[in-house]
Simulated assay, not measured.
Amino acid sequence: MISEFIYKYYIDPIHYDNSYNIVNTLTYAFILLVCTWLIYRWLDSNHISIDREFVYSLIPWIVFGGCLRVVEDTGFIKSDIHVILITPLIYFLIFAIAMPALYGAYVLEKRGVIPSWKRIYFWAGILLSAVTLLFIIWFGLTSAHFDLLVAGTILAMATATTGLLYAIIRYGFRWQYVQDRLYQILIFGHMLDASATSFGIDLHAIPYTEKHVVGSALIDLTGTAFVMFPLKLLVLIPGIYILELYRREGATGIWYLILVAMIMVGLAPGIRDMMRMVLYV
């Protein structure tokens, strides 16, 4: 009975890359919160500063995760090992690469080998992202499509909606703290996710589908994937408000980590969806 439950709600959706269900969605959300807290405790216990530069150094690794997920979409990996590139396993894979690299760079700085571990860590993420992106470009040019117009359209949608949401929050709600660059990255990441989803389902030549529970239900209810934009508003506006309360209470370390987690769950799938649509896979 228990094994059937596990296969139905956890293993089969990963193995067959099916849509999410309410059970695994809530489970993964809980795991993300727990992991965020554990990472915070580990960083704090090792006296690794969690600051603005720390967040910036992680952004390329989020991009790397989004690009690496596209490698699985290409079907290039034929063996069963491809499942480690499917959510949520890919998050553990990125973690297994990123955390040792982070600690190694930190130790090198402490020993005076390098001047700044965050700078090295940032460029390591850039390098991994570039290598993965080069593979995606190569695959698109040799084995699939590589439609830059798709990327341009999605990025234009994301940029325009980011500007609009920023204006609403900054001038409508008069939340001046949204001028913080990290909040702007957060908004852009989720607008990219919403733009890619909307374009892929409603406008792309290939009929893509939404796999997340809430998004899928709202799309079925409204008949359009552009409902993702108001859904993002319902998440982002109170999310940013609550985040700012944390920061004002002095909990800056956990504020930075929660902010990174929120950026990740928007930017990474946004990049993945956009790039797979560029390839038509």
Rank of each mutant, 00 (worst) to 15 (best):
I2P: 03
I2L: 15
S3W: 13
S3M: 09
I6T: 11
Y9K: 01
Y9N: 04
P13V: 00
I14N: 02
I14L: 04
N18M: 10
N18T: 08
I22N: 08
N24W: 10
T25Q: 08
T27N: 03
A29E: 03
L33M: 15
V34W: 02
W37Q: 09
L38K: 12
W42H: 13
L43F: 12
S45C: 06
I50D: 09
R52N: 09
F54H: 09
F54I: 07
F54S: 04
L58A: 05
L58P: 01
I59R: 10
I59W: 12
I59K: 08
P60S: 01
W61G: 00
W61Q: 01
I62Y: 10
V63N: 00
F64T: 05
G65R: 01
G65W: 08
C67Q: 02
L68D: 08
V70K: 00
V71I: 15
V71K: 06
V71L: 12
I77V: 15
S79I: 10
S79P: 09
D80C: 05
H82E: 10
I84A: 01
I84L: 03
I86S: 07
L89T: 05
I94H: 05
F95T: 10
A96G: 14
I97E: 10
L102D: 06
L102T: 10
Y103Q: 03
Y106W: 13
R111E: 13
G112V: 10
I114F: 10
P115R: 07
S116F: 08
W117H: 14
W117E: 06
K118G: 07
K118E: 11
W123H: 14
W123G: 03
L128S: 02
L128F: 15
L128K: 01
L134F: 12
L134E: 04
L134P: 03
I137V: 15
L141Q: 04
T142G: 01
F146L: 14
L149Y: 14
I154S: 02
T159R: 00
T159Y: 07
T161A: 13
Y166I: 11
A167E: 04
R170Y: 09
Y171G: 03
R174P: 02
W175Q: 10
Y177A: 02
Q179K: 14
Q179V: 09
Q184W: 11
L186C: 05
L186G: 03
I187D: 07
M191F: 11
M191G: 04
M191V: 01
T197W: 02
S198W: 15
F199C: 03
F199Q: 02
I206S: 05
E210I: 09
E210F: 07
H212T: 12
A217H: 14
A217F: 15
I219E: 12
L221Q: 14
V227Q: 06
V227H: 11
P230N: 07
V235G: 00
L236Y: 14
I237G: 11
G239R: 04
G239F: 10
I240K: 04
L245V: 13
R247M: 12
R248V: 08
G250T: 05
Y256I: 03
L259P: 13
A261N: 07
M262N: 12
M262T: 07
I263K: 00
G266D: 11
A268Y: 05
A268T: 15
G270M: 09
G270A: 08
M274C: 10
L279F: 11
V281R: 09
